[in-house]
Design a protein around this nucleic acid. Structure first.
Lengths: 119, 119
DNA sequence: CTAAACATCAACCACATGGTTGAACGAAAA
DNA sequence: TTTTCGTTCAACCATGTGGTTGATGTTTAG
């Protein structure tokens, strides 16, 4: 197995909790880019963009490759996949519970007041 | 259509970017609970927990129902589903691109130096 | 060599976040 | 009514975040 370090969910979710950063990720879906290119559509200082990219990098959402005087960034998939897994699990448990509730409702649809509901 | 207001992704992701809050959500998968019950496993003041729950509530991740002197919380699914959708989309684009790259590699596996790669 | 391009650094500001405490308030139980 | 329970409020503190600027450092181009 690839000894990939488990993504820090706190960092991943925090990095995603910013519209500019999500847009930068979307930008990188089209291929790699350097900071100036990434900064282009934003009304923000270059250094501001650089800071955002550092957040994404530390969360493992992008990879930086320094080539001469430019820093080229590329989207990274594993971190986001980990976060997605947490959500999937959460949703799965949720649906399990809804199913259970459904069954419960069907059972107690008989109007005899026998079952004591705790809620 | 249910006129459900689009979840604010910033708020949802930010709310999820905290281990205590994720644990609280996990707790609520087992059913609703009031603040004291939710606070039980945490080494934190009641008011601290209350603040976390407010964050979850404002992100639309939980629903609060005031019953007498207690505030009962229940997990809410739509907001998380929205965030999950963003991730799904992101991953989908990613895989599309990987597929395209695969094809490109297969094409250019013939050693004639015809295709000009821009990267 | 000199100049331009790409990016960083340190310092700063304003504001949000995560946590505490002690006082207070409304509802329920005695 | 008095007490207790569940929770909020205001105030406070420390730290993190999002943004700026001006100076600096490297790499490439002229």
């Amino acid at each position: 197995m690839v000894e990939r370090k488990r993504a820090d969910l706190d960092a991943v979710f925090a990095a995603l909790a910013s519209e500019p950063r999500r847009r930068m990720l979307e930008r990188l879906r089209a291929g790699q880019a350097n900071i100036s290119e990434i900064a282009e559509p934003f009304d923000m200082s270059l250094f501001g963009v650089s800071k955002h990219l550092k957040v994404l990098e530390q969360a493992g959402l992008v990879r930086r490759e320094i080539v001469g005087r430019e820093h080229r960034f590329a989207a990274e998939i594993d971190a986001i996949a980990d976060a997605e897994r947490w959500m999937q699990t959460h949703l799965a448990f949720w649906h399990l519970r809804l199913d259970a509730l459904d069954k419960h409702i069907q059972k107690s649809s008989v109007p005899t007041k026998r079952g004591k509901k705790r809620t």
